[in-house]
Structure formats: structure tokens, C-alpha cells
């Protein structure tokens, strides 16, 4: 006999179709009106597994053998995060920035990456290469393109080691877009970068109020022109157009989305990603007109839906985050580290000043000198400390670890935006 999985979400579309999602298998399936009632019944009462439809539900993980202990499955899945053949490094090629955004939480104490840090990274990856199946690098900052020579130099080594040691290498960049010319972008693609996140917070007025250059001037026109030039580049990549909204920019969003459609609606490699401005620890935190929780839950997906209706797809990050383990933050993963420009090692990008976040240093010879008691703080504060998380449908995706920093700072559960509005998200994925 088979029972419904505890990790299912079942939702109906406006057309009476049924969407079913399972966070342990990552499956998402759509059933038409004719099948919907039958599937609903099977997923409520369980099934013997005799019919073709029942077997399909078993294959996708929506029905599981009645003997299976699914909580044990989730516990084992969590243990597999300790595999050492997959590594994620967040690298800060510089911590300087040419912007001074109103909501920024960084204070730019360290500049460009030192020779010691670069050599340490090269040696570390060369030493680890023979154990790896996969290395993912996230170029972060500061503004990483202020140090694109560092990105080029390190990428050359990473790609060479990946080729010699036969592991999969991928990279992405988070940039303000001001220096993202067509030439620089093409170089990033050569460096193995597959996704670039560029923040653009509305049309010219809204964006320039929030994202100024360090000299106080606006940044919109240059970024927009850069982005438009990238449409001429051939290749398979995602440009994630990230928009941070607040209470005072809400009203301008529909016009902004129409402008995005006019400029990027003909190129599906440009995808939207709407997020709320939050008090992330910057010096202007108390003045920020942040939205309340209900507004956030509503507006993220309202804007995303409007963009889809205008022909602008949403970022693959959203459906991707529903996969098993995909909503676990890098800070909570045992084999993931932030390497700062002075070779300091951190866990979380939001709390560089916190002592528990300062893990140690990367030596020039490639040795990681790390305080593993601090690593344990970041990697064991999730579902194992929270009975609600242990019983949640989303547990395999986030493991209670979507943001260990938030849980530590507030004592609240750090549920992801996607999980909070999962039925809405599924309906958008099905569109």
C-alpha cells in the first residue's frame, strides 16, 4: 500500500487543474480537470499502486510506501550535506564599491584581494580538485567588477583545475551592473559564469533615489544601457533582474514592469526577481520605508505575475529553490565558505562584524585555518533545533536553514518567501 507523502503540496489553478509538488523528490506535476478529482482522492486516501496513474504518482514521490518513515528520510538527506565532493566558495575579489545604496549593510573596510589571498585560493582549489565532483563559485563583494582582473586570474586557475581533475565548474556574479559592459560580460561567460544578478530598483527616479554612485550621482542610465547591450551576446545564460521594493516604490512598479517588457520582453534570458528591502544591518536601517510582512507576501508574487503576463519570465532561482536542499543557505552548508579579499574566512555575507562569523584565514599555501566550533554553530541551528521545522512540508528543501543568521538574530523561524506563498508560486510555475 501507498500513502500520500508528508512533503506534498496540492493546489488548484483557476482552470480547475491540480498542481502537485513534493519537496523531497522536487517533482511538480499538473493534472487536467478530468484527472484532478481522481488524483485528489488518491493523494488523500492512499492507493494500492496497481493502476498506471498510481504508479506515476509513486514514481514522482507523491505517493510513498506506507512503511516509509519520511522524517527519517529527511534526517538522512540532511546528513548528506556533509559530502565533501561538492564545494561552494563565495569569493570577494574586492570589498570596495562604486555605489552607496540606501539599504546597503556593508561598510567596505577591505579593498581589493591581496596577492596572498589569491595565491591561497589557487593552491586550495588545486589541492582540493582531486576530491571534487563539483565546484561552484559565487563572485560577490563589494562590487566584484571593480576587480575583474582578479576574477579573470582566479577563473583561469579554476577552469584549468576543473579540466585536469574532471569536475564540473560553474559560477555566478552579483553586480550592480554599472561596469557590466558587453566586453566584460563576454569575458565572464568565458570564465564559466552562467548567471549574473543585476539590481535595478525601478524606473530612473525610484532607482536613482536608492542606488546612487559613491559621488551621489544616479546610476540608472548606465546600467540600463549596459543591460540592453547584453541582448546582442549569444549563449545560454540568465540575467537575473533583481528589484528590491519598499513602501515608497510600490506604486511605480507596474510602469517599471512595462518598461522591462519594452526593453527585454523579446529575450527570455532576462528574468525577474522581486524582493523586499529589509533592515539588513546598514546605517540607514531605521529610516528605510520597509513593507510589512503581509504586503511583502502579496507584492513579491503580484509583481512576478504581472511580469509573466507581460512576457517576462521569473528567475530560475525560484523554481530551483523548491528542489531538495536548494533553499539551504550556504552559511549552513558544511562545505561552503566565504573567502574575503584579505583571506579571512566567513560563513554569512550579512554579518561580517559578528565574531561567530569570523571562522579563520586561508593561508598562502592553501591551508584553511578554521575554527570548526564556529562552523558547527552555523550548520547545526536548523531543523534539529525546531520541532515545527521537523514536521513541515518544506523540510527537505530548506532543513530549517534558509537563513541561520535570521534565526539567530530574531529567534524566529526563517521561512523562505517561496515557502510562505507556496501555492501562489506553484501556480506561477505552471503558467
Amino acid at each position: 500500500m501507498y500513502k500520500r507523502s508528508r512533503f506534498n503540496v496540492v493546489s488548484e489553478t483557476d482552470l480547475g487543474e491540480l498542481i502537485v509538488y513534493n519537496s523531497y523528490s522536487g517533482a511538480i506535476a499538473l493534472f487536467d480537470k478530468e484527472e484532478a478529482e481522481k488524483v485528489h482522492g488518491l493523494l488523500t486516501k492512499g492507493a494500492s499502486g496497481e493502476t498506471h496513474l498510481e504508479q506515476q504518482l509513486v514514481q514522482q514521490g507523491f505517493l510513498v510506501s506506507s512503511e516509509i518513515d519520511e522524517k527519517r528520510r529527511a534526517t538522512f538527506l540532511h546528513q548528506t550535506m556533509h559530502r565533501t565532493d561538492s564545494m561552494h566558495l563565495v569569493i570577494l575579489p574586492t570589498e570596495s564599491c562604486n555605489f552607496r545604496c540606501t539599504y546597503c549593510y556593508e561598510d567596505f573596510p577591505r579593498g581589493k584581494m591581496t596577492e596572498k589571498a589569491k595565491q591561497g585560493l589557487k593552491n586550495y582549489v588545486q589541492q582540493q580538485g582531486k576530491y571534487l565532483k563539483q565546484l561552484t563559485v559565487s563572485w560577490f563583494g563589494g562590487e566584484p567588477l571593480l576587480a575583474d582582473d582578479v576574477i579573470n586570474e582566479l577563473s583561469e586557475t579554476f577552469l584549468q583545475v576543473a579540466n585536469e581533475q574532471d569536475f564540473v565548474y560553474s559560477a555566478e556574479v552579483a553586480t550592480n551592473g554599472y561596469l557590466l559592459t558587453k566586453d566584460r560580460f563576454e569575458q565572464l561567460l568565458k570564465n564559466g559564469v552562467q548567471q549574473v544578478m543585476v539590481t535595478i530598483d525601478g524606473n530612473e527616479v525610484e532607482h536613482n533615489q536608492r542606488r546612487k554612485l559613491a559621488n551621489g550621482e544616479g546610476s540608472f542610465a548606465t546600467i540600463f544601457e549596459n543591460l540592453r547591450s547584453l541582448k546582442e551576446v549569444e549563449g545560454d545564460f540568465e540575467i537575473t533582474l533583481r528589484t528590491n521594493f519598499d513602501e515608497e516604490s510600490l506604486a511605480a512598479m507596474p510602469d517599471f514592469i512595462s518598461s522591462l517588457k519594452a526593453n527585454f520582453g523579446d529575450d527570455p534570458r532576462f528574468k525577474t526577481y522581486f524582493r523586499p528591502v529589509a533592515r539588513w544591518g546598514g546605517k540607514n536601517d531605521e529610516c528605510l520605508p520597509v513593507c510589512d510582512r503581509n504586503t511583502i507576501d502579496e507584492k513579491i508574487w503580484e509583481f512576478t505575475e504581472k511580469a509573466i503576463e507581460e512576457g517576462l519570465p521569473m528567475s530560475a532561482l525560484i523554481a530551483g529553490s523548491l528542489q531538495p536542499t536548494a533553499s539551504v543557505c550556504y552559511a549552513a552548508k558544511p562545505n561552503s565558505f566565504i573567502i574575503a579579499s584579505d583571506a579571512q574566512i566567513f560563513k554569512c555575507t550579512l554579518a561580517f562584524d559578528a565574531e561567530e562569523n569570523q571562522l579563520g584565514t586561508l593561508e598562502e599555501d592553501g591551508t584553511l585555518n578554521i575554527d570548526y566550533d564556529k562552523v558547527a554553530l552555523w550548520t547545526t541551528s536548523g531543523e534539529e533545533t525546531d520541532e515545527n521545522c521537523q514536521s513541515c512540508f518544506f523540510r527537505p528543501a530548506c532543513q530549517g536553514n534558509h537563513c541561520p543568521f535570521y534565526r539567530k538574530a530574531t529567534g524566529d523561524r526563517p521561512c523562505s518567501h517561496e515557502k510562505r506563498q507556496i501555492k501562489k508560486v506553484l501556480s506561477l510555475i505552471a503558467k
Binding site: G26, A27, E35, V39, Q60, G61, Q323
Partner: peptide
């Protein structure tokens, strides 16, 4: 049934 995302063992 239309599979939007294939289910697999993680």
C-alpha cells in the same frame, strides 16, 4: 499528467 519538474531521489 504533465510533468513540469521530474521527481528524483535527491
Amino acid at each position: 499528467m504533465k510533468i513540469i519538474q521530474q521527481g528524483v531521489t535527491p
